[in-house]
Design a binder for these strands. Structure first.
Lengths: 206, 206
DNA sequence: CCGATACGCAACTGTTTCGTTTCGTATTTA
DNA sequence: TAAATACGAAACGAAACAGTTGCGTATCGG
């Protein structure tokens, strides 16, 4: 066992890499991406400058921009929505409230726009984000919908893929031209309004 | 009156500008944007090469990249959806079918991503696209929804902004991870399925 | 024909930014 | 202390691009 907390084998001798520098690099990367930068526009120089670090320190750790971004984006993992599981309506509202909150976070919005735009240019990176951030959430929502059709809280013949698109797409689109940043208001209760209108339908009560 | 079809004043004498070159430049610009290029990444050199044109020919016509893009994007105007106006449901299906068709067009998808990403960097350009392409369509949809609440085909207390987000957001989100390009299928009748499920609601018939 | 203008092409200058290398210093193990 | 490695700063050569100019040719009006 070494003198420090390093339990793995022998330390390779020489000055160890600074964990602070590493964190600063990751933070700077996410900052810049969060300010609307492309992967293409993102430059190692800008990251180094923002992090207060020499370019060498970055190149020593990552072979290229994409590797760095993959590592950086993996840190964005946000907790899954906490669902109480008592009523489907309540769970859907809670779920959409998380989506609303996320849509006000510049970092997350920029990450989503990268996922949508650069899928062809950076398939590895986008695949990792999808698998780490998006898929788990989709699965949570799908489970709520399936439960709803089983308990009778949702119609038995529900088209689940369409319903998922309806819930997420509606709130995303609404936030797009309502509160670009959260600058305006994220109208309290928007999640509830959307869920209730989607549950009840646009047509009159028949 | 000149010898040609030019009815405006005297022609300025000298070889007239080639309409073919102009069209080729516009096409090349839209091509490159349609391949996923940013405004920032788009280079005059690339446009000239793609169009089979000298850079001079471009600089003679437009002072800068943004001016060129503004002109190019203005050519994307697509006809408004043809609505028969007999039933609201039928009109909504027709409207969404246009959205589905557009979402399979690479050019349009890239233009939308520019509108979403570069709003701050190119406000003039984005404002023009919004006003020329987006607003007219939104107004058509809003009119259908208002008509529906008046005729009783839609619930009287309909939240119109939410309903618009639901219709457009659902189809957009669905197409996003179903048929990225139209490569797969744009499942026939998806517009109809979405409209019917949104009209009826996710909850059982009560 | 002549003058004027547009055309495509190639060359040029100046700027930016990239990824790499070099250098002097700091920190760790042996 | 000596060897090894990391650090930040600076400089370097290569590449891409902007915007301009010159050249030979093409197309217009008169």
């Amino acid at each position: 066992m070494s003198t420090t907390d390093e339990t793995r084998a022998a330390r390779p001798a020489g000055r160890p890499r600074s964990a602070r520098a590493e964190q600063a690099i990751i933070d700077a990367t996410l900052d810049l991406l969060g300010e609307g930068m492309n992967i293409a526009e993102l430059s190692i120089e800008a990251i180094a400058a923002r992090a207060g670090v020499g370019k060498t320190t970055i190149y020593r750790r990552w072979a290229n921009k994409e590797d760095l971004c993959v590592d950086a984006l993996a840190r964005l993992k946000s907790p899954l929505p906490e669902l109480r599981g008592e009523s489907v309506r309540e769970d859907l509202v809670a779920y959409l409230e998380v989506v609303v909150r996320d849509s006000c976070d510049a970092r997350r919005r920029c990450v989503m726009s990268i996922v949508m735009n650069d899928a062809e240019r950076h398939p590895r990176l986008v695949a990792r984000v999808r698998q780490a951030l998006i898929e788990p959430r989709r699965e949570v929502l799908a489970a709520v919908l399936r439960r709803g059709t089983a308990t009778g809280e949702l119609r038995a013949d529900l088209d689940v893929p369409v319903a998922m698109a309806a819930l997420i797409g509606t709130v995303t689109w609404y936030m797009r031209d309502a509160g670009p940043d959260g600058t305006t208001e994220s109208p309290a209760g928007i999640a509830e309004r959307i869920v209730d209108q989607l549950l009840a339908g646009l047509a009159p009560a028949a």
